[in-house]
Design a protein around this nucleic acid. Structure first.
Lengths: 109, 109
DNA sequence: ACGTTGACCTAGAAAATCTAGGCCAACAAT
DNA sequence: ATTGTTGGCCTAGATTTTCTAGGTCAACGT
C-alpha cells in the first residue's frame, strides 16, 4: 500500500458497501482503478485482512465462480460490518481533520 | 495515537517547522492541544520516533533547560528534514485524496 | 502438451506504535 | 530533612499491519 497503515479495513468495508458483493481480486483491481493507481494493495496484505475481518464477523464469504470462469470467494458486508464501517468512517474523518489542524497551524495561532 | 500509522514522522516534522525548536514533551502537548485531543501520542511512540529521525538526519538535538527548570532535549529541523517534510506532505495529501475517491465512489460511477 | 492467466493462500520479515514500566532532578510540603 | 509530586527522558517487549516472496491449482489458448 505504501501509504498509511490502518486504512485497509476501512477501504475494504467501503468498497463492499459501495460496490456490493465482490471477490478478492476484484477488490484489489477496483481500489487500484478508483484511486488512479495511488493505492496499490498487495495480495499478501489483502487476503490476511479479509480473513481477519471474516473472523471478526464484519464480512461473509461464499464460494462462487468468477465472470472469467474461475473459482472465487465472494465477500459481502454483514450487519456488523456496516456498523463497523460507520465507526471507521468517523475515525478516518477525525484523523484527517486532526492532521489538517497541525498542517494549518501557524506560529501565530 | 490510536489513529493511523505512518503519520507520526510527518506530524513531528510539521510541528517543528511551524513552531520552531521544541523538546519532546512540548511536541506531545502541542499536538494534543492543536488537535483538540484527537491525536494523543504516547511517549513510548514519540521518543523512539525522534531517535529514528535524528539518526536519519532529519532533526537535530541539543540539550538545554526547559522553562520549568528541567533538563530537556531540544529538537530542530535540519535542511534534510525540511525536504523530507515536503515529501511527507505530498504523501499524506495523495493518500487522503485517494481514500476520498473510494469514499465518494458510488455504484453508478 | 505447455505456457499463461486468474484467483487464492501462507510463512516470515519489516515497521510503527503502544504498554508498562524505570530513571533522575527540581520543587513543594511537612 | 524527608517525602511526594511533577517534568522530562528513556527502553524492552508485545501487538498490529503490511509487504515480500514465494506456492497451489484450474481454465484457457495455441
Amino acid at each position: 500500500m505504501k501509504v498509511v497503515q490502518g486504512t485497509l479495513d476501512y477501504l475494504v468495508l467501503k468498497t463492499l458497501s459501495v460496490e456490493g458483493v465482490k471477490h478478492g481480486f476484484e477488490i484489489l483491481e477496483w481500489i487500484l482503478a478508483t484511486t488512479d493507481g495511488a493505492l496499490e494493495i498487495e495480495e499478501g496484505s489483502l487476503y490476511p485482512a479479509l480473513h481477519r475481518m471474516e473472523k471478526r464477523g464484519l464480512i461473509e464469504a461464499t464460494w462462487g465462480v468468477s465472470p472469467k470462469g474461475r473459482r472465487a470467494k465472494y465477500y459481502g458486508l454483514s450487519a456488523l460490518g456496516e456498523r463497523e464501517l460507520v465507526a471507521e468512517e468517523k475515525r478516518w474523518a477525525s484523523c484527517v481533520e486532526a492532521v489538517g489542524k497541525i498542517a494549518v497551524a501557524g506560529p501565530g495561532s
